[in-house]
């Protein structure tokens, strides 16, 4: 049974399925109950599962994650929502210092199956602190896993897998794609959570992206095809771990790699990919690995975000530079 639905709706359906399947699954966050979340991702869940399982919390992010840790220690599987990317930092200490490390410091005696959902990224004309891409700040921390779906079907299945994971997962939801619709099959056999996927085959150059930038890379590949260039598009889907084997396989075929993300390029996930792929594919590379992303500046006011975010022309420009080597 396949059904066309928006990415936000797919997450909603996935959360509903998880709540139905396991009484230990809880939803927590600011405005997730009666309102259904500011993006309506949890719409209707409190009505159907009650205030005891879909919990409107005080406005305190550290408190949300800290109490979720305690609930996980008691045997629950909390899925917490951080309302916007830029609001996660009050919880950063609980995530980095406690959530990420507790399994290791207990020598494996306690598990922390907590999912932290974060709508992230720009492109929706929002005010300050509502458009950031902080995934690298979490990828740097051992003990966390980081996933980011690019489409409704992945959003549905990856959320299922994140909730089933016995490790904490930071689940970055591409908020500007919340309303994009795609077929979601509830009988599909999903790829593993941290496996990358070739979403368009090509021979001249590999474009690697995740979350909101996958759609852009499709558009870039389409435009390049019209100029006779064959680009392969790789949806990484996971930022920790990164499926380097899949990137390597693609780059060994094409010889060229451009990594695209909204987050600033400096110390971003693209830097890690560039370093690793240079090491793995040194003799296959026809050009240095190039990165396209945000600048080393605070996320700009909305009227400037189109200049800040990677767009079709900026990615095409990087493609041309790579092919010119």
């Amino acid at each position: 049974m396949a059904e066309k639905m928006a990415l936000a709706k797919a997450i909603n359906e996935s959360l509903r399925k998880a709540l139905e399947a396991d009484p230990k699954v809880l939803i927590m966050g600011e405005d997730v109950g009666k309102l259904g979340g500011v993006f309506r991702v949890t719409d209707g869940l409190q009505k159907d599962f009650g205030e005891d399982r879909v919990i409107d919390t005080p406005l305190a992010e550290s408190g949300i994650v800290g109490t979720a840790i305690g609930l996980a220690l008691r045997g629950y599987r909390p899925v917490v929502e951080i309302q916007f990317d830029g609001f996660v930092f009050p919880a950063y200490d609980q995530i980095v210092t406690q959530l990420a490390k507790m399994h290791a410091r207990s020598l494996g005696k306690v598990k922390l199956p907590v999912v932290v959902r974060i709508p992230y990224g720009g492109g929706i004309g929002a005010v300050e602190h509502h458009s950031e891409s902080p995934e690298a700040l979490f990828a740097h921390v051992a003990g966390l896993k980081i996933a980011s779906p690019s489409n409704a079907s992945d959003a549905y299945w990856m959320m299922q897998q994140a909730i089933q994971s016995d490790d904490p997962v930071i689940f970055f939801e591409p908020k500007r794609r919340y309303w994009d619709k795609a077929e979601v099959s509830r009988e599909a056999i999903p790829d593993p959570l941290h496996k990358a996927r070739v979403v368009r085959e090509g021979t001249d150059l590999t474009l690697a992206a995740y979350g909101p930038m996958v759609k852009l890379c499709h558009e870039v590949a389409q435009a390049a095809a019209e100029e006779g260039k064959s680009l392969e598009v790789l949806d990484l889907r996971s930022v920790s771990p990164i499926d380097f084997d899949s990137v390597q396989a693609s780059v060994q075929k094409t010889g060229r790699l451009v990594v695209v993300h909204e987050a600033p390029v400096f110390f971003g996930s693209g830097a890690e990919i560039a370093a690793r792929i240079t090491e793995r594919c040194f003799y296959h590379l026809e050009a240095p690995v190039l990165r396209v992303g945000g600048y080393h500046a605070p996320y700009p006011p909305a009227r400037l975000e189109e200049e800040y975010l990677p767009g079709l022309d900026r990615v095409l420009d990087a493609v041309d530079r790579s092919l010119a080597y």
Binding site: G63, G66, T67, G70, L73, Y76
Partner: peptide
């Protein structure tokens, strides 16, 4: 486990207690 960073465990305790109530 002992918690080194000051005060963090009070939230874990609260969450655990919320679980007991549930």
């Amino acid at each position: 486990l002992y918690t080194i960073v000051i005060g963090s465990q009070t939230l874990h305790a609260t969450g655990y207690a919320m679980g007991i109530a549930k």
